[in-house]
Amino acid sequence: MLDDRARMEAAKKEKVEQILAEFQLQEEDLKKVMRRMQKEMDRGLRLETHEEASVKMLPTYVRSTPEGSEVGDFLSLDLGGTNFRVMLVKVGEGEEGQWSVKTKHQMYSIPEDAMTGTAEMLFDYISECISDFLDKHQMKHKKLPLGFTFSFPVRHEDIDKGILLNWTKGFKASGAEGNNVVGLLRDAIKRRGDFEMDVVAMVNDTVATMISCYYEDHQCEVGMIVGTGCNACYMEEMQNVELVEGDEGRMCVNTEWGAFGDSGELDEFLLEYDRLVDESSANPGQQLYEKLIGGKYMGELVRLVLLRLVDENLLFHGEASEQLRTRGAFETRFVSQVESDTGDRKQIYNILSTLGLRPSTTDCDIVRRACESVSTRAAHMCSAGLAGVINRMRESRSEDVMRITVGVDGSVYKLHPSFKERFHASVRRLTPSCEITFIESEEGSGRGAALVSAVACKKACMLGQ
């Protein structure tokens, strides 16, 4: 009897593995994704193909990295998701002549009506938060230079001027797309009239992360975010950046690689679950690469896999709870928690219980395998993109072996128990001629924006502006 049951459990697990095998990517698959990513990057950089390229390769006008001589107080704003952060950054000489960066910050959550109302409502709310922060720190009387981390696709015309191309991540505030974001912020500050600010720089969160990590390690020339969304930036040779005049030196390019796949480059790798996630998203047909990796989508992918296993009578005796059938019910943090389970399955059992399920031991094991399959594919897909960037940098610099540091931020990278190990191992397999160091950014977005502002202020002083 026991043997029969054991055989049935083994057969069930084997069927589960057959279904989950769809998520496995072979090294040849990853090399294919990497080569296609490089081709799209090239198209994004070139003037004649930029418009139709899915990977936009947006110039950021960040050319210099901090040298350690900029000092002063800077205000930093960070808008990239449902939370908005205001930070005071003091850049100065530390002990023994070292450079020191001290920060104080406060988080504000953005109400739904500000995210989806008008641009005026959104930026009025942001300036209200700045006003509140300055009151708390008794700094209303000071006109501070301000660095703005704005983590949406922007076409820069200068370091302090950028046109919002399109909202992502659930934002829909009308009247912002096609307009200068810094102008919208300046107008809102003017409307309030109770404080003055000098907006000197606007950067993407990947750029802010790279600059913040450069402060720790001067070989950091790539910034990457794996959180709600997924994106990367890197220092490109100016001669390859056709959208900006000049051939000397390097400029940081914001790849906006989340949109890779929007022209069909990933079609052969998309599964039924991916198509369902895409169809029910706020932007169907867009940001397809990001939807395979980002935390906004990972939990939902797992939920759809679990429903398939229920329908195949391989999980929960073929019956799903009402909660499990509800879109968004299986949160991405559950994926991390399930994979963090120590082996007694308590954590998995508790999560499934909150979803109205009474799982068996085998159910718990199957749910864990589903989570591992989805998150491992995410790590491997992400590795193909980064390997594409790094191999490109090595080739354009004609280096036999390139040493490089990548600064990384984002909740999936930082909080998932195995993502970074799987990701690092896969990147290294795909970049055999590179020695890569990964560092995690601390308060990256805010500190990085302030350091970019410090560079901009120093330049302005040198130019006598």
Rank of each mutant, 00 (worst) to 15 (best):
R303H: 02
S263Q: 11
W257V: 01
A201F: 07
S109Q: 12
L270V: 15
K142C: 12
G117I: 01
R403S: 13
V310G: 03
M402C: 11
Q38A: 08
F195G: 12
H218K: 15
N83W: 11
M87I: 05
Y234P: 01
F269R: 01
K190C: 07
G183L: 10
M121I: 10
Y349Q: 11
A208M: 04
E331G: 13
G229D: 11
F334R: 10
N283L: 12
G72S: 02
F148L: 12
D132V: 09
Y273P: 13
T332E: 10
N180K: 10
G328C: 06
R155D: 15
L184E: 09
D29S: 11
N166Q: 09
N180C: 15
S127C: 14
L2A: 09
T116M: 12
Q26W: 07
F195H: 15
L164V: 15
I110D: 00
E22W: 10
A456V: 10
A379M: 08
M381L: 10
V89I: 14
K90S: 08
S453L: 12
T405S: 09
R7G: 14
D3S: 11
F152A: 13
G294F: 01
F84Y: 05
V389S: 00
L357F: 14
N231S: 13
F330K: 00
R345M: 10
P59V: 03
M238V: 05
F195L: 11
G229M: 15
P417H: 15
I126C: 08
R392N: 10
M87C: 11
V406H: 00
F74C: 06
T326W: 05
V253M: 13
V455E: 07
V86Q: 06
E237F: 11
G175L: 11
F330C: 05
R275L: 09
D124C: 05
G285F: 01
H137G: 04
R186W: 06
V55K: 00
K136F: 08
P145I: 06
G343E: 06
V277P: 01
S453V: 14
S280A: 12
D29G: 03
S109V: 12
Y349M: 15
F123M: 12
S212E: 07
C457P: 10
P359R: 04
L355Q: 09
T332L: 06
L352K: 00
G229C: 05
F423R: 00
M107T: 10
M121P: 04
I189W: 13
E120L: 04
S340A: 07
K172A: 14
R397T: 08
T82G: 15
Q98P: 11
D160F: 05
K15P: 11
V33I: 13
R327E: 06
L271V: 05
Y125C: 06
M393A: 04
K104G: 07
D158N: 14
G175A: 07
S360A: 06
E256S: 14
V62E: 03
K414E: 03
E177P: 05
V55C: 12
Q286E: 11
Q287S: 11
A119F: 13
L164Y: 11
Y215I: 06
V203D: 09
G318D: 12
P111Y: 05
K31N: 03
M381I: 09
V241A: 08
V89H: 06
I126T: 04
C382F: 02
D205W: 05
V241M: 06
V253S: 01
L306E: 01
V277N: 10
R7W: 08
G388R: 01
P284I: 08
S76V: 12
F152Q: 14
R377M: 00
G229A: 09
R155N: 07
L58Q: 14
Y413I: 11
F133K: 00
F330N: 00
E157P: 15
K56A: 06
S411D: 14
T431G: 01
E28V: 04
G162Y: 10
E93S: 12
G385V: 13
L357T: 09
E290W: 08
E421H: 11
R403V: 09
Q323P: 12
M202P: 03
F438W: 11
T60L: 04
S411H: 11
S418H: 03
R155F: 14
E9M: 10
D78C: 15
S174Y: 14
P432E: 10
E51S: 05
T116L: 07
F148K: 08
D267W: 10
K172L: 14
F423L: 10
F133N: 02
V335L: 09
F23A: 05
S280G: 13
A282C: 04
H317T: 15
S445G: 13
Y215W: 10
E40F: 01
L415M: 12
I404Q: 03
Q98E: 11
G97F: 15
R191I: 02
N166R: 15
Q106N: 14
V241C: 10
L463C: 12
V101N: 03
E322P: 06
D113H: 15
L306Q: 00
G72W: 03
L463D: 11
E435L: 14
S441V: 07
G246Q: 13
G356Q: 06
E93C: 12
C129E: 12
E48K: 10
V277W: 02
G448Q: 14
W257N: 02
R303E: 00
S383G: 14
G356K: 03
S426V: 08
F84D: 08
K458E: 05
A173S: 11
G117A: 03
V200D: 10
V207Q: 14
V338K: 00
V367E: 00
S54L: 07
D135E: 12
G227N: 04
P66K: 03
I348A: 14
G183N: 14
M197Q: 11
I351Q: 03
A232H: 00
H424K: 15
S353M: 02
G444Y: 06
G285K: 10
S375Q: 08
N83F: 13
L307V: 10
R63P: 00
R392W: 05
S353E: 15
D124Q: 06
F269L: 13
G68L: 12
G295V: 08
M298H: 07
E112N: 14
S281Q: 05
E248I: 05
D198W: 03
E52G: 15
V241K: 01
D160N: 14
G299Y: 00
R422D: 11
A10T: 14
Y413S: 01
E242D: 14
L79I: 15
G94I: 07
N179H: 12
Y413Q: 00
D73K: 01
R5L: 11
K296M: 13
M197L: 10
G388P: 01
E28A: 08
I19M: 10
S375T: 12
D78V: 14
E248K: 11
R403Y: 13
K104T: 13
I126Y: 02
